[in-house]
Structure formats: structure tokens, C-alpha cells
């Protein structure tokens, strides 16, 4: 089983920032703010900073909303556990964001389908798909049209990589990795 959320920021395998809170709205805000501060101090250009910041939030909110075993606290706030890491590889000048969390295995086909939908699409096709998804939602007061993976694919410079490893018959570890 996973531990509490763990965030590691490293440069060429040398961590420059890490902590392990339980993921909830407050820890997402704190993590995002700290990541923004660190990237700005490292003079990351605004476009890359925006992509890293937004993907980090997207992945953390996915863990909060969809991971197996997520719960709601007494003050009606969601909380979950998972692991997230952000690394910088200087040779290629890319940032790699990876998260791992538990999923119910009966949701894996849906996850695979959503990632397969964006695989191999270029930015133009992804933008077109974004608009189609938004346009064809039936009820605008209902929850999402499944834009998360599309948005992530648009910001990632390489195809989304993922792995689902069963722990038992019902639960598995889901790891997803994006390169920016």
C-alpha cells in the first residue's frame, strides 16, 4: 500500500525539495505554491512553469478525487494518499512529473481508454478534441467531460506513460509519468 503523499523535487537525481503530507486541498495549495517558488528561483521560463504547475495540480487533484480509499474528513474536505515526484534532467532540459496512487482495478479500463484516446495525437488534434469534448457535454451543471488527460497530453512533450500493477484482486498501484 502507498504511504502518505510524498513530493520530491530533484535535479539529476539530487533532491532539492521533498515532503510527505496527506493530500488534501490545503496540501495541494502548499505544494503548488512551493513548486512555483522553486521553479521561479531556478528561472524556469513562464510557459514551462505554467505547464508544470498545472499538471502537478491536475495529478494531485486526480489522486484526491479518484484514488482508491480516498475519504472525506469531518469538515467535509477530501483527503487521500499517494506519491508525487518532480525531477529535472539537465541533459535534456526536461521536467518529469510522476505520481503513484491506489486505484480500484475495476476502473482501469476507463483509465486506459482515456489515455488511449489522446495517444498519438498532435497538439492541433488535441486542441480539436478539447473543444469537441466541451461542446458535446449534455448538462453544463454536471461534472467534467474528461478533459484531464487531454490537457495533460497537450502540455507533455512526450506520450503519457503509465503502469497499473495489481496488488490483489481489487486494488492496484497506478503510476503515470509526464515529461515537460
Amino acid at each position: 500500500m502507498t504511504s502518505d503523499l510524498e513530493i520530491v523535487i530533484e535535479i539529476d537525481e539530487n533532491p532539492i525539495y521533498e515532503f510527505s503530507p496527506t493530500i488534501n486541498e490545503a496540501s495541494i495549495v502548499a505544494s503548488a505554491s512551493e513548486i512555483e517558488r522553486i521553479l521561479k528561483s531556478n528561472h524556469v521560463n513562464p510557459a514551462k512553469l505554467q505547464d508544470i504547475y498545472e499538471i502537478t495540480i491536475e495529478l494531485m487533484q486526480n489522486i484526491l478525487n479518484y484514488s482508491y480509499g480516498h475519504s472525506t474528513s469531518e469538515d467535509n474536505k477530501k483527503q487521500a494518499t499517494g506519491k508525487i515526484s518532480l525531477s529535472y534532467w539537465s541533459k535534456e532540459d526536461v521536467y518529469i512529473i510522476s505520481t503513484t496512487n491506489l486505484i480500484a482495478l475495476n476502473t482501469q479500463d476507463k483509465i486506459k481508454s482515456k489515455i488511449a484516446e489522446v495517444a498519438g495525437l498532435d497538439n492541433k488534434a488535441l486542441r480539436k478534441l478539447t473543444r469537441e469534448k466541451m461542446r458535446h457535454r449534455d448538462d453544463k451543471h454536471e461534472r467534467g467531460a474528461g478533459l484531464g488527460f487531454i490537457v495533460m497530453a497537450r502540455k507533455s512533450s512526450k506520450p503519457i506513460e503509465y503502469n497499473i500493477k495489481a496488488i490483489d484482486e481489487q486494488v492496484g498501484n497506478f503510476t503515470i509519468t509526464l515529461v515537460i
Binding site: 498545472e54 491536475e58 457535454r137 453544463k140 461534472r143 467534467g144 467531460a145 478533459l147 484531464g148
Partner: peptide, 16 residues
């Protein structure tokens, strides 16, 4: 400035 995918969709609904 920064926003998540759910906001992307909500913006669409606002402009719609």
C-alpha cells in the same frame, strides 16, 4: 493565470 481542466470546461460554459 493558472487553472485546472475543470476550470477549462467551466470557462467554456461561461462563454457559452
Amino acid at each position: 493565470t493558472y487553472f485546472n481542466s475543470a476550470t477549462t470546461q467551466s470557462l467554456f460554459d461561461i462563454l457559452d
